[in-house]
Structures are given as C-alpha cells and as structure tokens.
C-alpha cells in the first residue's frame, strides 16, 4: 500500500463521514461546518490527482466565500433546531423520490466505470495552472467566454434585486 492509497482512503473516509454528519446534525450551523470539512476532503482528492489549482479554488470559492455567506444567513436568521418547521409526510415522500432518482443516476454512472483504466494519481499536468490557462484560452475559449457572460448577467441580476426596496 503506497502513501497515496493510504491518503486516498483517509480522505475518502473523511469526506463520506463528514457528509453523513452534515446530514445527521440537527443544528444548521454544525451542518455548515461539516460541509466545510467535506470541501477540504474533496480538495485533498484534487491534490492527489495533481490538480492543485482546482483544489485551492475549491477552498477559496466554496469554503472561503459561499460557506461564509451560508453561515452569515443562518446566523442572522438565528435558525435553531427548535425553530425548524415540522416536516409533513408529503415532504418526506418528495425527498425519498428525488433522493432515490439521484441514487439511480449515480449508480448508473458507477456501473459504467472502466476498472481496467483507473485514474492515474499524481501524474499528468492538466491540473496545473499554466496548462489549465492555456487550455481554457485556446481550445475552450468560446465556452469560457460564454460562461463569463453568464456570470456577469447573474451579477447584474443580483445587483438589480438588491437595489429593489
């Protein structure tokens, strides 16, 4: 067993374990904190795949910005386990159906995995920032620009909504 395999197992246990904790804790604030641990575990996986840029961007954007905003909202609204609305059985049913279909899709994807050609760890330079930048600005320049326009329109939309009293 190499160090990489050991790290992979460790990170996977951490990711799955904290994802479960996120679902099982009653308090929304604890939930968010467990979700941040999940992001860290996933970033660890990216580093194992030598995708350092993706790993750090995952931390900056998700753990550093989006989760702070989540925490912000939860703290301001003072959501506690007592103030959580009681769920009726219809909500449970909807949850089971949507969760089940997601599970089906994931299972279908897992079944298709080509076990003969596993992902190589710590090799390949595709995840390093210089390679990534070149690829984005040559091969994928059109999708890249279109998604940036999408972001811009989302930003303008947010400002417009925020301006409305």
């Amino acid at each position: 067993m190499s160090v990489t395999t050991l790290l992979f197992i460790l990170l996977s246990v951490m990711a799955v374990g904290s994802a479960l904790m996120m679902l099982l804790t009653k308090s929304p604030v604890h939930s968010i904190l467990w979700l941040i641990v999940v992001f860290f575990a996933i970033s660890g996986h990216y580093i194992l795949l030598n995708a350092q840029f993706l790993a750090i961007v995952n931390i900056i954007v998700y753990a550093g910005a989006i989760m702070v905003l989540f925490l912000f909202v939860v703290m301001l609204m003072n959501l506690n386990s007592e103030s959580e609305p009681a769920k009726n059985y219809r909500l449970h049913l909807i949850g089971i159906i949507s969760g089940g279909s997601l599970l089906l899709v994931l299972l279908a994807a897992v079944m298709k995995i080509d076990l003969a050609h596993p992902v190589m760890m710590k090799v390949g330079e595709a995840g390093l920032i210089s390679k990534l930048g070149k690829t984005l600005f040559t091969d994928y320049v059109l999708p890249f620009e279109i998604s940036s326009v999408l972001f811009l329109s989302a930003m303008i939309g947010a400002v417009v909504i925020g301006k409305k009293d």
């Binding site: 840029f53 750090i56 961007v57 931390i59 900056i60 753990a63 550093g64 910005a65 702070v68 920032i129």
Partner: peptide, 8 residues
C-alpha cells in the same frame, strides 16, 4: 493562491 485561500 494558497495564501489567499487561507486568508479567506
């Protein structure tokens, strides 16, 4: 970027 990540 690591510094930036930790700062955030």
């Amino acid at each position: 970027l690591y510094v930036f990540g930790v700062v955030s």
